[in-house]
């Protein structure tokens, strides 16, 4: 199999990239995602606040994704869902795996729109146990919003970035008691509107200059030790769930075999380029990457 532009990841960035690569004249465009649906993290975002720039409307993440997905589905894009890109080689070949089979695809240009992953609690290497009941915020959001699961009765949220705040509100609305959002910095890390909706409207205490210094519980989380960073004071906070929102890391492991600097045929966009706060800039950057990838593919096609 061969194509002009191969796009890895069909979130906001990848969908925009595939569409604009096509518009810019690329002949065949492959759009690959390991998930069974389009949209990346968007479908699990049931709160509104997406698309203010592009659609001049406050949509939910799921609605925002649906608008783009409709365009992708109508376009002559070779869409492969439920398919993971396992590896990319310097010879411009990608190895794809899904229930439908394992195949190699050659391409002229590559758009990496693989998003990001969340920093897990393991990275903090805290003293204490490793009980069940610890989730990252994005994972918690997916489990609650898409899979209909419940996580626990009382939660502590570590990290006051947007994802942490959004989950604080959602868990509260779902009947889970959120006893604190804990933040090591002086102030809230998230956008003002998320601060308002989560901390103020839901009445959840935001503990700044505070961190979780230990996790307790043999089988399931029983509580955490909260440490005030300035005074060093510690106290036990009971909870059966700990949600971590410790930040995100661009997912670029696929690029490892390609060396540094990256070959000119690789284009990064969306959260795997840098962590974006709003989806509009993700889509715009995706579109830009798609156009550039198409141009390079056409150029190298003419040359080759």
């Amino acid at each position: 199999m061969t194509c002009d532009v191969l796009v890895i990841g069909a979130g906001a960035a990848g969908m925009a990239a595939a569409l604009s690569a096509l518009e810019a004249g690329a002949g065949t465009v492959f759009l690959i995602d390991r998930d069974t649906r389009l949209g990346g993290v968007l479908p699990q975002c049931l709160h509104s606040g997406f698309g203010e720039v592009i659609f001049r409307q406050e949509l939910t993440g799921a609605q925002y994704a649906a608008r783009w997905a409709a365009r992708v589905e109508a376009a002559p894009i070779c869409l492969r869902l439920d398919t993971t890109v396992l590896a990319v080689s310097p010879e411009r070949r990608a190895l794809l795996s899904g229930p439908a089979g394992v195949e190699e695809v050659s391409f002229r240009a590559l758009v990496l729109a693989a998003g990001c992953r969340e920093v897990p609690i393991g990275a903090l290497a805290l003293p204490g146990t490793r009980p069940a009941g610890v989730f990252t915020a994005g994972q918690a959001q997916r489990m609650v919003n898409l899979e209909g699961l419940t996580l626990g009765r009382d939660a502590v949220i570590l990290g006051s970035g947007d994802v942490g705040l959004v989950m604080a509100r959602q868990l509260t609305l779902a009947g889970c008691q959120v006893s604190a959002v804990v933040e090591q910095r002086e102030r809230c890390g998230g956008l003002p509107r998320n601060y308002r909706r989560s901390i103020v409207e839901c009445g959840i205490p935001l503990l700044t200059r505070t961190t979780v210094s230990r996790v307790h519980g043999a089988g399931r989380v029983r509580g955490v030790t909260l440490r005030q960073l300035d005074t060093g004071e510690e106290r036990f906070q009971p909870c059966d769930t700990l949600i971590t929102a410790l930040g995100m890391v661009p997912e670029r492991e696929l690029l490892r075999p390609l060396g540094n600097p990256l070959p000119s045929w690789v284009f990064l966009c969306g959260n795997c380029h840098h962590i974006h706060r709003t989806v509009d800039t993700v889509s715009l950057q995706g579109a830009q990457a798609g156009r550039e990838a198409a141009a390079l593919a056409l150029e190298s096609g003419a040359a080759g």
Partner: peptide, 22 residues
Amino acid sequence: SPWEVTQDGPGSPLLGGERRDL
């Protein structure tokens, strides 16, 4: 039920809170 699945044996359920019918 998903609420019966454990991380590491009895006493370590992955899910908590109110069970639902899925």
